[in-house]
Design a protein around this nucleic acid. Sequence first.
DNA 1: GCTCACTTGTTTAACTTTCAAGAAGAGGGC
DNA 2: GCCCTCTTCTTGAAAGTTAAACAAGTGAGC
Lengths: 170, 170
Amino acid sequence: MVHMKTASAEDTRWLTDEEQRTWRAYMHAVTLLEDHLDRQLQRDAGMPHVYYGLLVQLAEAPCRRLRMTELAMRAKITRSRLSHAVARLEKNGWVRREDCPSDKRGQLAVLTDEGYEVLARTAPGHVAAVRQALFDRLTPEQQKSLGEIMTILAEGLQPKEAGADLPWLR
Amino acid sequence: MVHMKTASAEDTRWLTDEEQRTWRAYMHAVTLLEDHLDRQLQRDAGMPHVYYGLLVQLAEAPCRRLRMTELAMRAKITRSRLSHAVARLEKNGWVRREDCPSDKRGQLAVLTDEGYEVLARTAPGHVAAVRQALFDRLTPEQQKSLGEIMTILAEGLQPKEAGADLPWLR
DNA sequence: GCTCACTTGTTTAACTTTCAAGAAGAGGGC
DNA sequence: GCCCTCTTCTTGAAAGTTAAACAAGTGAGC
């Protein structure tokens, strides 16, 4: 079998101790930070971090509205998840749906004034939390380094178009 | 009001453009990576990343068993979440519960042979996924830097004992 | 115009996570 | 022993997420 697709125990390059430590520190930190911010936003804004991110995206978009698919892509979530999320935000009165004029299949998620208010009221606390948990603890060099590293990782994981990882097909 | 606890819009130190970019790159990368690994493990091992982490912790523990609270702390999840998770893993036959001999309230989560097999079979693929997504893309310097940064962040977010953030009480 | 493959967004059910409440035992002080 | 408080773990309901299936619309090719 020349082209094994799955790694087997024998030919696996296990993580070195150093890599192991790095990976665990990563998982540990990322878990704690997400939990921390989720709790902070649940308490102060009454919604999870992902939902807050949706409002932010809408607030930044022209006319405070986006197509569902576009919003899903920017927020890096599935359309299904977005459907549920918008349903909830709509119930809160923070988002409203509108039909897309140019595509009858389409829906626009629109940030309501009330939604904007929530954002305006809770953003300072959220920024403070991010600052306190992240930026206040890192030197400028570390911040720069973190930015570079995360950019690289994100690029490598970008949901690829078909064949993006099959160079011989391009 | 001398001691404002919540930040207001006027005195908020918003993120600079640079910080903004760093923060978004972080969120972006972390989201994509967790999704990627969750999907990989769901497909190859039939469980989410967190559950896999529980099996790993048990496999490393003496006699492949741990008290529920201890396991919850190592995995950084709540005891409640762990109860549900172990119930599911028990249904799969990968974990078994035992009474703790020294404390009648206590329960031990024990990795079964079957659970160990699952781990042995799926670990190579998981390590490969982590390598491909993370280590293969970073220089040794970046790996070192990432480790340091994540260690700092994790320390700052450690679930604190009462008063840990109140220096004048210590 | 018609067809066919693809896109868009929603829905359902199964599953996971959170939150609040509670049963049961441990352990110190008296 | 008895009381009181704290710890341990579980439970049930509500909220959120996922995967698969589906209705409706688009658009290219003929």
